[in-house]
Design a protein around this nucleic acid. Structure first.
Length: 880
RNA sequence: GGGCGGUUAGCUCAGCGGUAGAGCACUUGCUCGACACGCAAGGGGUCACAGGUUCAAUCCCUGUACCGCCCACCA
C-alpha cells in the first residue's frame, strides 16, 4: 500500500540511476526511426545553474521525452561551454584574493587552473541537470574546448579566412582596461548615470579674442583631438571652416572642418573630434583623413609619448581629467559646467567603463554572412516561435557591423594565425602548415589571442555531431528540429549559429527556434549573478520535489510572456502530485490495477465509455499543445483532466459502482486501471519521477519495462463516444444542481433526501434508471422516484425538461426558497431580454450567421421553458 | 529617437469576434472509508482609457496613459 503522502526525495535518485544505467537516453544513429534532434544550449562552466536554466532544460526535456515516446530516435545533445571571459573573471578574482594575477602566474599554469575549474563546475552543472530529471544523451556530452570541437574551430577559422570572411584589421574596438581585452559590442551595456558636461573654449588661430566652444563629457580626450567639426550649413561657422584652433594645454593646431556629424542644435554646434577614442569621431576622422592620436594605453593611462605633456604621462584617465579641468579653469577656458544624465559604456561582465581603443584585431565579416541568415528566416526555413521574435532577430541581423572575435585572454581557442618578424600572417590548422606557407627557415610565432566564446558555440549544431568529419550522426541529426532558448541570446548565439551554419554547412542549423520566457525575480527583474537575485532550482527541488518544479515551470511558460515565479504555484503543483498519488492509492485499494487483455473499445457502461472518450480527448489536446510549443496549455490540459475529470468525477462515480459489486464493477476496475495507466504515460514528460514510480509499482512487466520508453498513446476512432459524453454531462448537471440547491438552502450535509422528478422524458427516465446509485451517492439522496404531484413546500430546480423536487419543507426556510427562486427567475429574465434585443435587431437577423441566430433562439426557448417551470414552483410555494 | 511586448477577479496569470476563465487567497458547509497538500457549494471583473470598424468588440484598427524589454543615440 502506498503511503498517504508522496515523498519525492525517496524515489528521484533511484529512477534516474535506473534510466541512465539502462541507457534509455541514448540516440541510435543506426536506427530506422525518424530522428528528432534538440541541441542543448551549453551552459557556461561558471558555477551552477539558475532557475532560468531549469525552465530551459525542463521544456527541452518535455520535447525530448514526448518525441522519444512517439517512437522517434531522439537526440538531445548535451554539453557545456568554456565561457572564456566569464571563467577568466572567476579565476582572476581568485588569483587577486591570493595576492597574485594571471600575468605573474603565466599562461601555462593559468590554463591548468582553468581546466581544474572546468572539471569542478562542469560536474556541478551536469549533476544539477540530472536532479532536474533531464534526459540528454550523456554519453555524447561535449565541451566547447574538447578535442573534436577544437578541431572544428580550427577548420572553421581557416575556411572562413580563406573565404575572405575572417580578416585582420586595425579598428576602434571596445577595450576593457581591467580585463585587458577587447569585448564585442554585445558585451557592452549602456549604463545611465549622472554626469557632467564641460563647455570648453578653444582659441581660434590668429585671433586672441575669438573662441569656438565645444562641449564634452570626456575632457581628458582633448589631448587626442585632431579637429573641431561644425555643420556645413551652419551659418555661424561658415567663415571659420578651414581655419584652425589652438588646442589648449598642448598648443597643437587642429583644423576646423565641416561635417554633418555635427548637430547645430546641440551645444554650440561645434564638436571636438577625437578619432582614436570615440566611435563617431572615428568615422569623421576617416571621412576627413584626420590623424588619429591614441592617448591611452591598454590600462587606460595616458601614454608616455611626446605629444602628451610630461606631467600627464602615465596618469590614469580620470586623474588626467581632473588635472586638465584644473588647468583649463586656471586659463579661464571653461565656459559652463552642466549636470546631465548620460550613459556610459560598461563591460557586461567586469562592470568597468569601456574605452574605445585602436588596435589590430580579427574580425568576422558578419554583414556578409547575415544576408543569407536573414533570408533563411524570411523564407521560413527556420521559424521563430513565438513569431514576434523574428523582429528582434531581423533587427540584429539586418544591421550587422563586423564582429570582433579576438580576445586578449588565455582560456579559449587560440587563434590559428602565425606571424613572421615582418608581420606577415599565416593562417593554418597547425604550425606545420603555417610553416610551410611561411617557407622553411622563417621564424614564425603564433597569435597569443583566443577567440570570442561565441565563435565555438556558433558551430555547436554541427561540431558536436562530428563536423568536420563526415559522420553518420552529422548526416542524420543535422539540421536539428528545435532549438529552445531565451530571447536574450538571439543576438549572441542564435544569429551566429544561423550565419556559420549557412556558410559552412549550407543549411540552417534548426527548423524551429522556440523562445521561452525569462524567469524574473519578484520585482520582475532579470536574474543575474551580478545582481545577486538568482534563485537556485535545487533549493526549490528540495522543498517541493522535482516533478512539482518542472510542472510549475511548464505551466507558467506561456508564449511571449515572462515568468514571475510565485511560491503558491509551486505548492499547488506539489499538491497535484500528491493528488495523483492518492488517486493511485485509491486504485490500489480497490483492486483497479490490472487491465490485461482489456479492450477499451468494448466498454459497455456509460461512465467507462465516457472516461475512455475523455482520455483520448485529453491526449489529443496534450499532444497538440506540445507540438505547438504551447507548454502551458499542455500542462493545464493534463492537470485539468487528471484532477477535474478523472479524480473529481470518474473516481467518485466508480465508488458506488464498486461498492455494490454491480455488473459494471469488473468493467469499472479494468477501465480505471487502463485510465490510470494512460494518465501515467501522458503525465510522464512533465512529471517523470512520480509517474515512473507509480508505473513501477503497478504496471511494470519486467526489469526492462519502463514508463520512460513507453509508447505515447495513439487511440483508435472507436474510443470516441459522444453519446456517453452527453449522458455523463447530464449526470454531472443533475448532481451539480442538487448539490448547489442543497448548499444554497443550507440542507445539512448529512441529510439523505428522497428526490422526486416530474416531467421526465423517456431518455431521462432511462438515464435515472441506469445511474440511480451514482446520483444518490454523489448528491446524498436516499432515493429517486417519478411523480406528477409536487408536495407542499418542496424545493425545486430544473434540469433540461425535468423538474427536480426535494421534499424538505420541514428543514428549510420557505422564504429563503422563494427568494432563491425569484433570483433565478430574475437572471433568466435578464437573459431573455438580452436575446430579445438581439433577435429584434433587423441588422442582426440579416447579417449574423444562421447558426448564431439559431443558437440564440434555442437558448431563448430553453430559458422560457425553465422560467415557466420555476414560476409554477413559486406558485406552489405560495399555496403551501 | 526607432521597435516589441504588457495592462483581464485581492494576488500570479490563461484566453479571445458571438452569455468572462484557472490556480492561490476569501466565504460557507463537510471525520461522504484515496487525498485537509482534501471534498462540496459560493462571493468577486464597465477585460487600462478614448475613439473607430462590425449585426456583434475584452478580442480587430487608431490614438492616449502607465509598466517592462530590445536597438540606436547622447559634443
Amino acid at each position: 500500500m502506498l503511503d498517504k503522502t508522496f515523498d519525492p526525495k525517496a524515489i528521484e535518485e533511484k529512477h534516474y540511476q535506473d534510466w541512465e544505467e539502462a541507457g534509455v537516453f541514448a540516440c541510435d544513429p543506426n536506427s530506422d526511426k525518424v530522428p528528432y534532434t534538440v541541441m542543448m544550449p551549453p551552459p557556461n562552466v561558471t558555477g551552477s545553474l539558475h532557475i532560468g536554466h531549469a525552465l530551459n532544460h525542463t521544456l527541452q526535456d518535455i520535447l525530448i521525452r514526448y518525441n522519444r515516446m512517439k517512437g522517434k530516435d531522439a537526440l538531445w545533445q548535451p554539453g557545456t561551454d568554456h565561457a572564456s571571459i566569464a571563467v577568466h573573471m572567476v579565476l582572476e578574482k581568485k588569483l587577486h584574493e591570493e595576492g597574485t594575477n594571471r600575468f605573474k602566474l603565466g599562461r601555462k599554469k593559468f590554463l591548468e587552473k582553468a581546466w581544474e575549474w572546468k572539471e569542478y563546475s562542469g560536474n556541478t552543472i551536469t549533476s544539477q541537470l540530472r536532479r532536474l530529471g533531464t534526459t540528454p544523451d550523456w554519453e555524447r556530452e561535449r565541451f566547447t574546448m574538447d578535442e573534436g570541437l577544437s578541431k572544428a574551430v580550427l577548420k572553421a577559422f581557416v575556411k572562413l579566412y580563406e573565404g575572405g570572411i575572417i580578416y585582420r584589421a586595425e579598428r576602434l574596438v571596445n577595450w576593457d582596461p581591467e580585463r585587458q581585452t577587447v569585448i564585442s559590442d554585445l558585451e557592452v551595456i549602456q549604463k545611465e548615470q549622472k554626469g557632467k558636461m564641460w563647455h570648453i573654449k578653444y582659441p581660434v588661430e590668429g585671433d586672441v579674442e575669438q573662441f569656438i566652444t565645444v562641449a564634452t563629457t570626456r575632457p581628458e580626450t582633448m589631448l587626442g583631438d585632431t579637429a573641431v567639426a561644425v555643420h556645413p550649413d551652419d551659418a555661424r561657422y561658415k567663415d571659420m571652416v578651414g581655419k584652425s584652433v589652438v588646442l589648449p594645454i598642448t598648443g597643437r593646431m587642429i583644423p576646423i572642418i565641416a561635417d554633418e556629424h555635427s548637430d547645430p542644435e546641440k551645444g554650440s554646434g561645434a564638436v571636438k573630434i577625437t578619432p582614436a577614442h570615440d566611435f563617431n569621431d572615428f568615422e569623421v576622422g576617416q571621412r576627413h583623413n584626420l590623424q588619429m592620436i591614441s592617448i591611452l594605453d591598454e590600462h587606460a593611462q595616458l601614454v608616455k609619448e611626446d605629444f602628451i605633456p610630461k606631467e600627464y604621462q602615465g596618469l590614469d584617465r580620470y586623474k588626467a581629467r581632473e588635472k586638465i579641468l584644473h588647468e583649463l579653469e586656471d586659463q579661464d577656458l571653461i565656459v559652463e559646467v552642466e549636470t546631465i544624465k548620460n550613459t556610459i559604456p560598461v563591460g557586461e561582465r567586469s562592470g568597468v567603463v569601456i574605452e574605445p581603443f585602436m588596435t589590430k584585431q580579427w574580425f568576422v565579416d558578419t554583414p556578409t554572412l547575415a544576408k543569407p541568415a536573414a533570408q533563411a528566416v524570411r523564407d521560413g526555413r527556420t521559424r521563430f516561435i513565438p513569431q514576434q521574435y523574428e523582429n528582434m532577430y531581423f533587427a540584429w541581423v539586418d544591421n550587422q557591423i563586423p564582429w570582433c572575435i579576438s580576445r586578449q585572454l588565455w582560456w579559449g581557442h587560440q587563434i590559428p594565425a602565425w606571424y613572421d618578424k615582418d608581420g606577415n600572417v599565416y593562417v593554418a590548422e597547425n604550425e606545420e602548415d603555417a610553416q610551410k606557407q611561411a617557407g622553411a627557415g622563417v621564424t614564425i610565432t603564433r597569435d597569443d589571442d583566443v577567440l570570442d566564446t561565441w565563435f565555438s558555440s556558433a558551430l555547436w549544431p554541427f561540431s558536436t555531431i562530428g563536423w568536420p568529419d563526415d559522420t553518420a550522426e552529422l548526416g542524420r541529426y543535422f539540421p536539428g528540429d528545435a532549438l529552445v532558448t531565451g530571447f536574450d541570446i538571439i543576438t549572441f548565439w542564435v544569429s551566429r549559429m544561423m550565419m556559420f551554419s549557412l556558410y559552412i554547412m549550407d543549411d540552417v542549423p534548426f527548423k524551429d527556434v522556440y523562445i521561452h520566457a525569462l524567469v524574473r525575480d519578484a520585482k520582475g527583474q532579470k536574474m543575474s549573478k551580478s545582481k545577486g537575485n538568482v534563485m537556485d532550482p535545487i533549493d526549490l527541488i528540495e522543498q517541493y520535489g522535482t516533478d512539482a518544479v518542472r510542472f510549475t515551470l511548464c505551466a507558467m511558460a506561456a508564449q511571449g510572456r515572462d515568468i514571475r515565479l510565485a511560491d503558491e504555484r509551486l505548492q499547488g503543483y506539489r499538491n497535484f502530485a500528491t493528488k495523483l498519488w492518492n488517486a493511485s492509492r485509491y486504485c490500489e485499494m480497490n483492486d483497479c490495477l490490472s487491465h490485461d487483455g482489456f479492450d477499451p473499445s468494448t466498454a459497455q457502461y456509460a461512465p467507462n465509455q465516457w472516461i475512455i472518450h475523455e482520455v483520448k480527448a485529453a491526449a489529443q489536446e496534450i499532444s497538440q499543445a506540445i507540438e505547438g510549443y504551447r507548454f502551458n496549455e499542455a500542462a493545464n490540459a493534463v492537470y485539468q483532466f487528471v484532477w477535474g475529470t478523472f479524480c473529481d468525477w470518474y473516481l467518485e462515480i466508480s465508488k458506488p459502482l464498486l461498492a455494490k459489486d454491480s455488473k459494471a464493477a469488473d468493467e469499472v476496475r479494468q477501465t480505471t486501471s487502463w485510465a490510470l495507466h494512460q494518465i501515467l504515460i501522458l503525465l510522464n514528460p512533465f512529471m517523470p519521477y512520480i509517474t515512473e514510480e507509480l508505473y513501477a509499482g503497478f504496471f511494470k512487466k519486467d526489469a526492462d519495462d519502463r514508463l520512460i520508453t513507453a509508447a505515447w498513446p495513439e487511440y483508435s476512432d472507436n474510443l470516441s463516444n459522444e453519446a456517453a459524453k452527453t449522458e455523463m454531462e447530464w449526470l454531472q448537471t443533475m448532481v451539480g444542481e442538487i448539490r448547489s440547491v442543497r448548499a444554497d438552502m443550507n440542507v445539512p450535509a448529512g441529510a439523505k433526501i428522497a428526490l422526486l422528478i416530474k416531467g421526465a422524458n423517456a431518455q431521462t427516465q432511462s438515464r435515472i434508471e441506469s445511474h440511480k446509485d451514482v446520483i444518490c451517492k454523489m448528491a446524498r439522496l436516499s432515493d429517486i422516484s417519478l411523480t406528477e404531484n409536487v408536495p407542499a413546500g418542496a424545493v425545486q430546480t430544473i434540469v433540461e425538461e425535468a423538474t427536480l423536487i426535494l421534499p424538505i419543507a420541514d428543514i428549510i426556510d420557505l422564504d429563503e426558497e422563494r427568494k432563491r427562486l425569484t433570483k433565478v427567475i430574475g437572471k433568466l429574465d435578464a437573459d431573455i431580454q438580452k436575446i430579445d434585443a438581439k433577435l429584434g435587431n433587423e441588422k442582426f437577423v440579416k447579417n449574423a450567421p444562421e447558426e448564431v441566430i439559431e443558437e440564440q433562439k434555442s437558448r431563448k426557448e430553453e430559458a422560457l421553458a425553465k422560467r415557466t417551470k420555476l414560476e409554477q414552483a413559486v406558485k406552489q410555494l405560495q399555496s403551501a
